[in-house]
């Protein structure tokens, strides 16, 4: 409940502050969004499984974003940035879908 409220607060902050994204940060934005979505779905799933752990949620979000950013950064340096980005999106995308499937089973038993 608190997390949902905080999410709404973050959205409101983003809408009102309307920050400019620095140029050097822009390549990481899509990856960060995917990692964030992954964390949200993972958190909701764990909550429904009654296994939600604050520490794990926070650490997994931060580490996911950092690792995803690191992979993209390395890929950019090596000249295979788009391919590695695709890899990150595929892996996190699969996780999002399977977490969504678990949530669906919990909510609709289907």
């Amino acid at each position: 409940m608190i997390a949902a409220l905080a999410l709404a607060v973050g959205i409101a902050l983003g809408v009102f502050l309307d920050p400019d994204v620095p140029l050097w940060l822009q390549p990481y934005l899509p990856i960060a969004v995917i990692a964030a979505l992954d964390s949200v779905f993972g958190g909701v799933r764990a909550r429904l499984d009654k296994k939600f752990d604050d520490k794990q949620f926070v650490v997994s979000f931060i580490s996911n974003v950092l690792i995803a950013a690191l992979i993209v950064y390395l890929g950019d340096q090596l000249g295979v940035g788009s391919q590695l980005s695709t890899g990150v999106v595929v892996v996190l995308g699969i996780r999002i879908f399977s977490n969504a499937a678990a949530i669906r089973r919990h909510l609709f038993s289907a």
Binding site: I2, A6, G10, L13, G14, V33, K55
Partner: peptide, 27 residues
């Protein structure tokens, strides 16, 4: 699983960051 006030606050902050991130990316 231990839930203290501190860990709950951390979760809230993280959730706020996630929401912020989503909106920024959208905009």
């Amino acid at each position: 699983i231990r839930r203290t006030r501190f860990t709950r606050a951390l979760t809230a902050v993280t959730a706020a960051v996630i929401g912020f991130l989503l909106v920024v990316a959208y905009q």
